[in-house]
Every structure is written in structure tokens, then in C-alpha cells.
Design a protein around this nucleic acid. Structure first.
Lengths: 150, 150
DNA sequence: CGGAATCTTGACTATTTTATCAGGTATTGT
DNA sequence: ACAATACCTGATAAAATAGTCAAGATTCCG
């Protein structure tokens, strides 16, 4: 059970933009240096985020990337979704091994509700969190989440 | 965000064993047929489950696999854990990209609590569920989970 | 005993996901 | 205009995951 590295790194990159207070856009190189990633990889991630409408690019000298909207309006769920699937069991029930072209449990699958409930919780949780929330110290955030969610 | 196919298929296979009421063990072939997987793949999965002490094998003619303990005592969490990681962000904070040998956010990572809370919820939830619970119709289970968990 | 049924193992191949590379295109400042 | 800066794109390489194959070991039964 894991998130893809694109999702994790993408979240970090966009968080970089959210934390960047200056008016000037942030270049790919700056983000890459901050996160210790290669510029090529950061590039790729940002292109995906741009296609999802979460960041926008400014070309030319002094160009770079900025958030498309205020950090408060960008939920973690949106960021992760744009970089890959967020639901847990979804892909499995669509991939089938060899012999049949539909899930053996089509009619009655007792595993489905397990993923269902988890997905619902995960999605709700990630939708409530936005980049502004994440833009505070680890301890503050932890406290806030625990107060709010448990 | 996804579970590995080994985890999904492994859960299905051990669920097969749990649902198998006869005294005789179930052969790899029978499980494979029921789940529409190849015998080789089922084999591989069962070996893993055996190493985790969740099933035991009986060799020779009339052999096969049986649960190592009553289905009530086997939690879904244990099954999934034995087949791969269950925690979400764990592997990411240990994999690093290229340039440094430790996480850039070591000291103060606001993403960590996000995975932390999710992991805690997921783990609790999957620990409460056992194979006996799953061994009922989709609708019954769904009702039970929703009553209990939300 | 001897062979059929069944598990056991490890190496191998295929597919998907990650990450890099290199060459291209757009924009801006001077 | 033009050179510098920075985004854009598609091909390719590397690594991880998924799935297959083949030969071996163990047990049962006649």
C-alpha cells in the first residue's frame, strides 16, 4: 500500500511554491535545489501539475512557476489526484489476470467494501487539507490534524 | 495510492481457504481456478503467506493448504502486511533522489503527519477486520463496516 | 516399490513505474 | 534583433513489480 513517488514529490514541489512568499515566480532550478531532485524530474512533475490547472508557468527570462490559485484553495487531494490514482483498490478490480476479462467476484465481492470505506475516509481527509494547512511546522500541523480528525 | 496486486490477490486466496468448509485441504489448483489466476502465481502467493505463518501446507497426495489458525484470528492487516507494506508514506521517506543520502525534510516535514494520521486509521481499521468478517455477503459486510466504523 | 499428486524453489521474462537526457520552442531584457 | 533564460516534449535508460517456467522434493496409495 503506497503512494507513488510522483505523488509525494509533486506534493513537496507544489508546497515549495506555496511557501514561496515573494512575488517573483520560482524557477524549476530553485525548486529542484530545495528538494534535492533533478531539474528534469521537477520539470516533468510541474508539467503534470500545470495540466491539472494547479500551477501556471511564466516563460522567458525571470520566468518560472507560480500557483494558479491561492494556496488555501488547493487541497492535498487535488494535488495527489492529478499525479496518480488516489483510490486504493480501484485499479485491481479492473486489472484481471489472464484467463477472464472480468473480475471473478463481479457479482459478490466482500473485499470491495473494505477498500470502499478506506477510500472514502482517505479522500475526505485529504480534501479537507489544503496547502496553507501544510505550510506550518510539523508539530502545529500534527496538533491541528489530530484535533480535527480523530 | 494503491495496494500491490500480491496484496489484493493474496487476500482473495486466503479468503478462499477461509470459505472452504470441508476438512480436506485445498489445492493450489483449486484456488487458482476459483480466482482465475495461474497455479504458479497462486503458489508464489501461498508460499509468502506460509512464511508469515498464516497458512500451512500439507504435502503429497491429498495435500494442499489450510489456514494455520481459525479464520477469526486472522486479521486483514496481518494478511496484507505479510504480502507487502501497509503503511503509506514509509518507503518514500527512506528513498532519496540522487544527491543526498537523507530526506531533505528530516528536521521538519509537514507531509509526515498527513501520512501518519492516514496510516494510523488504515491500520486500526484493517486490524479490526478478520477473515470471518469478510466471509459474508458484500451487502452484509458493508452494513456491518458502516455501522461500526463511521 | 513406483508412480501420481502435490508442494518447493529459484531463475527467468514481461510490464509498469521512475528517472534521465537531449534537442526544441517561447519569452523577455537590452 | 538576438542572446540568455527558462519552459516543453518525446525518446530512452534504469529500477521495481508482476507474473511465468521448469526442474526438484515429499508424501500417499496401490
Amino acid at each position: 500500500m503506497k503512494i507513488s513517488s510522483m505523488q509525494e514529490y509533486g506534493l513537496r514541489c507544489i508546497l515549495c511554491l506555496a511557501a514561496h512568499k515573494c512575488d517573483t515566480p520560482m524557477t524549476v532550478r530553485e525548486i529542484a535545489e530545495k528538494e534535492c531532485l533533478t531539474t528534469d524530474y521537477v520539470e516533468k512533475i510541474l508539467v503534470t501539475l500545470r495540466h491539472a490547472g494547479l500551477v501556471k508557468s511564466i516563460r522567458g527570462v525571470n520566468g518560472g512557476y507560480v500557483l494558479e490559485m491561492p494556496s488555501k484553495e488547493i487541497s492535498v487531494a487535488k494535488v495527489l489526484e492529478s499525479l496518480g490514482p488516489v483510490e486504493l483498490g480501484k485499479s485491481i478490480c479492473k486489472r484481471f489476470s489472464g484467463e477472464t476479462d472480468k473480475c471473478v467476484h463481479q457479482g459478490n465481492c466482500s473485499i470491495r467494501p473494505v477498500w470502499g470505506v478506506l477510500n472514502q475516509f482517505i479522500y475526505k481527509f485529504l480534501s479537507r487539507l489544503n496547502l496553507e494547512n501544510l505550510n506550518q511546522s510539523e508539530n502545529e500541523l500534527k496538533a491541528e490534524i489530530e484535533r480535527q480528525c480523530i
